[in-house]
Write a protein that binds this DNA or RNA. Structure first.
Lengths: 179, 179
DNA sequence: CTATTATCACCTAGGTGCGAAAGT
DNA sequence: ACTTTCGCACCTAGGTGATAATAG
């Protein structure tokens, strides 16, 4: 899942135990398709049948409030799949449906038994699940922003940097500019 | 550090909180050199000055007894250095000295405050710290056993497997045997 | 026709010993 | 003469979109 869902938290009890979890809810009961003509997503019918969302538990859970508060909490281990039979623990979603990630903060006692939870929802994190990008500008945005997509960047300076193996303007070997 | 130091534990309290740590003690006050003639390490003088060993804390710490008991505990994040000024948190050792890893299990309360600890020492894990292998049979052993050294293996079958991209005797494409 | 899957080249990130060079 | 450092090729491991093949 890129970009990565990440949050910072304040106000936890430093020595209390918390677990952080994320699930995904289908935002409406609709299936979408992308209208190339209108350059936007349009409703294509009612939503497909959906299994209850799998809960993704942040790998640091359970941990003390102190731990969660001292750095950005990144849910960079979340993987999505459209395979309803998935055995890898990935979160199952329906392609062409809109989703909203929900962040749950669970408070547990020293035995990690449940005490209570709060749920936080950030509407700006909604997204459309797809198996292929429908809009080239989204592709471009991802290529520009994801380090693993550097091989697809067209920006000239980036290409030369990749060939040269170093960053301007610090060149250990000037001749490498023209490989 | 390869091979990786790893242990299994039994008999912890499933809901008590533990931290696992390793430090390294110089086994004797001697510096060694490798006698190629005698094919063994011989004492070369008194040990060099040594700073107190850095403590390596297992990344899962603190965690419940339950967590530690349900899988092998691998200290695969330990890194050794001979740089006394190291800033990366690696464990500092003197080259050409013999070391013994010591495993500490610390029990903490729900606030992660210290309660008590036990230390376990396995003499079969002693090793000589080096900056270059002194005995080619050690090099060979490491090349054969470490997956990251596959590029140096001479065993023919391994080489062909690497080229073919699959393992005998299950060949998706027989012609690939002779690449 | 549209959506999905599988394979691929191309990356990031980092763990190996080799061998030349440098240090002591 | 012995020890250490550094850049290198070669790996493991896995995250990208492109593309062609497949499914429905």
């Amino acid at each position: 899942m890129f970009p990565t869902l990440q949050i910072t938290v304040k106000g936890l009890l430093p020595t209390a135990s918390y677990s952080f979890m994320v699930d995904f809810s289908c935002i409406d009961n609709k299936r979408y398709r992308y209208s190339f003509h209108q350059s936007k997503w349009v409703v294509a019918g009612p939503s497909d049948a959906e299994l209850p969302s799998r809960l993704h538990v942040h790998g640091d859970s359970p941990a003390l409030g102190d731990h969660w508060m001292k750095q950005v909490i990144a849910f960079d281990e979340i993987k999505l799949t459209n395979n309803q039979l998935d055995q890898n623990g990935h979160v199952i979603v329906n392609s062409m449906h809109r989703y909203q990630p929900n962040i749950h903060i669970i408070v547990t006692d020293s035995n990690n038994d449940y005490i209570c939870k709060n749920t936080y929802v950030f509407p700006e994190t909604t997204f459309m699940a797809v198996t292929a990008y429908q809009n080239h500008r989204v592709t471009e945005l991802k290529i520009e922003s994801n380090p693993f997509s550097k091989g697809f960047r067209e920006c000239e300076i980036e290409e030369i940097q990749a060939l040269a193996g170093f960053r301007f303007p610090f060149s250990p070997l000037l001749k490498n500019y023209f490989l």
